[in-house]
């Protein structure tokens, strides 16, 4: 019936996927509902920019060219992430560190762009407490920004652990799992970029 032959890894599970990887995917499934709630709230509120004389809606103030570039940066960080994973799977620790570092750098550029964008809106008089539309905008993009920032911390921690030798070729999967989280944060931005920024 159950034939389980041990490979050199020696791990046996019922589905053939490691617990950690399955756990991360299950968690990402759950995250869809979290971001779904925030995206829906934004969609519902996006035109409700309050009753004061300052009543521009978020999409009246977008700098689409700027956001397109930062979206592109985040999208490309997915490529560098996946290159880091395939480097560690081949056991190339130096390349792994380089690609992880580039990924973290691209993520930081994206976050800086977001901070700059937020500051522009704040300077124009539109803060988190302005109106339902702006509350929803900042909550959604801010939540995403927090996720990206956590991802950057995870990437930097992974670089540190490769330096101390706690991540090597045998632990390639832990880099892959960090990568899964990173890619997920990236696809959430794919949705936000279209639904929040591009569609008027």
């Amino acid at each position: 019936m159950a034939s389980a032959d041990h490979t050199d890894h020696g791990l046996v599970t019922s589905t053939g996927v490691s617990n950690e990887k399955l756990g991360m995917w299950v968690f990402l499934g759950s995250e869809c509902l979290l971001f779904g709630g925030l995206i829906s709230s934004f969609l519902l509120y996006k035109n409700r920019s309050g009753t004061s004389s300052l009543h521009e809606r978020p999409h009246d103030l977008y700098d689409l060219a700027f956001t397109s570039i930062s979206s592109f940066v985040l999208l490309m960080s997915s490529l560098t992430m996946v290159l880091a994973v395939s480097a560690i799977q081949r056991g190339e620790l130096r390349n792994t560190r380089v690609w992880l570092g580039v990924t973290a750098l691209l993520g930081s550029i994206f976050i800086s762009g977001q901070v700059y964008e937020f500051k522009e809106f704040l300077n124009a008089g539109y803060g988190f407490t302005h109106s339902p539309a702006w509350s929803a905008f900042f909550a959604l993009t801010g939540f995403h920004g927090v996720h990206v920032s956590l991802g950057i911390v995870m990437l930097l921690s992974a670089i540190g652990l490769t330096l101390t030798g706690r991540i090597g070729r045998g632990q390639a999967e832990s880099v892959e799992i960090v990568g899964l989280y990173w890619h997920f944060v990236d696809v959430v931005w794919v949705i936000i970029f279209t639904v929040v920024y591009l569609i008027k």
Binding site: M1, A2, S3, A4, D5, H6, T7, H9, L11, V12, T13, S14, T15, G16, V17, S18, L75, M76, S78, L79, V82, L83, S86, Q89, A172, E173
Partner: peptide, 26 residues
């Protein structure tokens, strides 16, 4: 539908995507 048998981890060995595919995808 889960594979009913207990299976050994394979880490995707075999059908492994190449870096070239990743770059094309990007």
């Amino acid at each position: 539908s889960v594979d009913a048998n207990t299976v050994t981890l394979d880490h995707g060995a075999g059908a492994h995507p190449t870096d070239k595919l990743f770059i094309k995808t990007a």
